[in-house]
């Protein structure tokens, strides 16, 4: 008989293994030379297929992994430290800020990557900053309620600003680009993008992984966390900032991808329980698998390309509804 701890380790290894399998299959999966899996034989003889795997599918799969792991881990951290299971990175003004920044980038330039990604990261972080500053001014509720409330307000401000930008955009060239970016996708992935995205994402995810147990402390209210020998304000803000950096980085590269940050942490908690020392690493793995699979569908389903953000939202909302309506739900709120 295996003990609970051994079973846990085995399950974790199995899921990590599953991620590797999905990753390898994604490299062979596509519409060239024929729709479906590329056989290893074809790959050996067909130079174009080799180039396709190395230059297109591999960077794209790596982007999908970074995207999924970042969104899911940020979702888990934000839900835990804000004590609210319905939070996702889209709250706190990050996503709307980044979307506004990207639209501004498209409007100002001819859509060069640098303009879009730098402006998206900048406004994403600014969304968080403004939410945080506004939260300090609100005279109502506890610190977490204030942060969520001001996040909603800042998000609304940015999305109305985004509406103005869409109104001003050239309907033939700029508006479709803004719209596609808002739906999100990985079609622009290449090695340069991977190299730009990897350092900030790897660094922030590593830091979050290292402090994964301590994250638990901040699901308590401030006074209790303080009584357990922590500095709740400082440590909570640090965790939020690291999460937002990783989200802003992947959002700048792939557009707004919703529902991953909400759904995956719930699934991880269902499997491993609330303790973030186990559910946080699991969340990263599951997020990566989920986005890889969605992206495989997105680039296969039609000759062209289905926006990834649409697929994650559709699958995410559907799975979330099933998860929440199942019996034996023990969420207390």
């Amino acid at each position: 008989m295996l003990s609970g701890e051994q079973r846990r380790i085995l399950r974790f290894i199995a899921l990590a293994f599953l991620l590797i399998i999905v990753f390898l299959l994604s490299l062979l999966w596509g519409r060239y030379p024929q729709p479906g899996l590329t056989s290893l034989n074809t790959l050996r003889v067909n130079a174009l297929a080799q180039a396709l795997v190395m230059k297109v599918r591999l960077p794209r799969a790596l982007m999908a992994i970074m995207l999924g792991a970042s969104l899911a881990s940020a979702g888990m951290v934000l839900q835990t430290v804000l004590g609210n299971p319905l939070v996702e990175p889209g709250l706190l003004g990050v996503s709307q800020g980044a979307a506004f920044g990207a639209a501004l980038g498209i409007l100002l330039s001819t859509g060069s990557y640098w303009h879009i990604s730098v402006l998206a990261s900048f406004f994403g972080l600014m969304g968080l900053m403004l939410s945080w500053l506004l939260a300090r001014k609100i005279r109502y509720g506890g610190s977490m309620l204030r942060l969520v409330l001001s996040g909603v307000m800042i998000s609304a401000l940015f999305s109305s600003g985004l509406g103005v930008l869409k109104y001003l955009a050239d309907p033939r060239s700029q508006l479709p680009e803004i719209t596609f970016w808002l739906m999100g996708g990985l079609s622009g992935s290449n090695w340069i993008l991977v190299i730009r995205t990897l350092p900030p994402v790897a660094l922030t995810l590593l830091i979050i992984l290292l402090v994964r147990w301590r994250v638990n402390l901040f699901s308590l209210d401030d006074r209790s966390a303080f009584a357990l020998g922590s500095s709740p304000n400082r440590e909570r803000i640090t965790l939020i900032v690291f999460s937002v950096i990783s989200v802003a980085t992947v959002t700048a590269a792939a557009g707004v991808i919703s529902w991953v940050g909400l759904l995956i942490p719930h699934v991880a908690r269902k499997i491993e329980g609330a303790d973030t020392s186990r559910s946080l690493p699991l969340s990263m793995i599951l997020g990566a698998i989920f986005v890889l699979l969605c992206d495989d569908v997105a680039r296969y389903l039609r000759g062209g390309e289905l926006p990834l953000g649409l697929l994650t939202a559709f699958c995410g909302a559907l799975m979330f509804a099933i998860l929440m309506s199942r019996r034996g739900n023990t969420y207390s709120r």
Binding site: G83, N84, V211, R214, N216, G273, A274, D275, Y331
Partner: peptide
């Protein structure tokens, strides 16, 4: 009383009391 947002087990919750004794990167 304490606000409990997630379904921690009793053991996991009681272990939070070890936080002041653990280095920031350690788990119990």
């Amino acid at each position: 009383e304490e606000r409990i947002s997630f379904s921690y087990s009793v053991l996991e919750y009681v272990l939070l009391g070890r936080a002041p004794f653990l280095p920031p990167l350690a788990s119990p």
